[in-house]
Amino acid sequence: MKMKSRPEITKTESPTIKELKFIISRIKKSPLSIIGVAIIAFFTAIALLAPILAPVPEGHMDPYRIPKTGWSSEPQAPSPEHLLGTAQWQFDIFYGCIWGTRTAFRVGIIVVLGNLLIGLAMGTFGGYYGGLIDELLMRVTDIIWAFPSLLLCMAFVSVMGPSLDSIMLALILVGWPTYARVIRSEILRVKLEDYVEAAKAVGCSDFRVITRHILINSIYPIVIMASLDIGAIVLTAAVLSFLGLGPPIGYADWGQMISLSRGFIFKNAQDPLGYWFTWTYPGIFIFTFVLGWNLLGDAFRDILDPTLRRR
């Protein structure tokens, strides 16, 4: 007798996969977010290929220091040796823009990770255990929110001393409360669900309940929102760097390159915009980079917003 073919097991997709598919289908439908993805992919390629696009000169120790080819304080117009010209003190603008992409990603990724880790830890503890820890968390976040964030960052950086590390640390110190509050309210919402109750009833440890049952059901939108903040973070870092609170002069950093070009808006009566290249190129890099993240972020905000989605 022939064996009957087994009935096919109908696979139900996990909600996470479903959500992911829904998001991807929505992104495909929105041309703006596709442009956003393309811009971010382009910059990722620049960052990865930096050593090929702008080779580090031999004997140059730190690749993030822009090589300089002279000491003249007058910027030189674009030429075959310097594709985008040179800035004050002969820093090569092309090299600075390319390696500056790596700096931008580094700042964005480190700050997002810092914000998420601290936010997750604080938000989870506060939301799950409640009580004194929660009260303390709420008050600390209230206090940090009582200041306009850029001004608080400025104060932190000037006390710590200007550098890229100070900027990143300041951005994390000011940024984590937002995530902690979002995660906290998510945990408060999920922790009363039946399946959490059930997990506790079968004797799961707090750690297991938090990681395997609560976080897994609430973390994805937060992680996505946090990563899409990279644009805003890089922009704020550029502002701080522009104000002179960033890395030392000559570091491959877009904000600082624009700061170097501030004195070169006006050349002379014959050729008023003679130094246009000093501020145009680094500006285009910052703007496009931030635009890419914001285009994607804008699409996601609608996708993730439960009151607006699926209409």
Partner: peptide, 26 residues
């Protein structure tokens, strides 16, 4: 929507420099 995303992504210090370049320098 597009103009507000563009405005939002525009580095304010760069916008200031561009405005000065056009209306002051040029």
């Amino acid at each position: 929507r597009i103009t507000s995303i563009i405005g939002w992504s525009f580095p304010s210090f760069w916008l200031g420099i561009l405005l000065l370049a056009i209306f002051y320098a040029a």
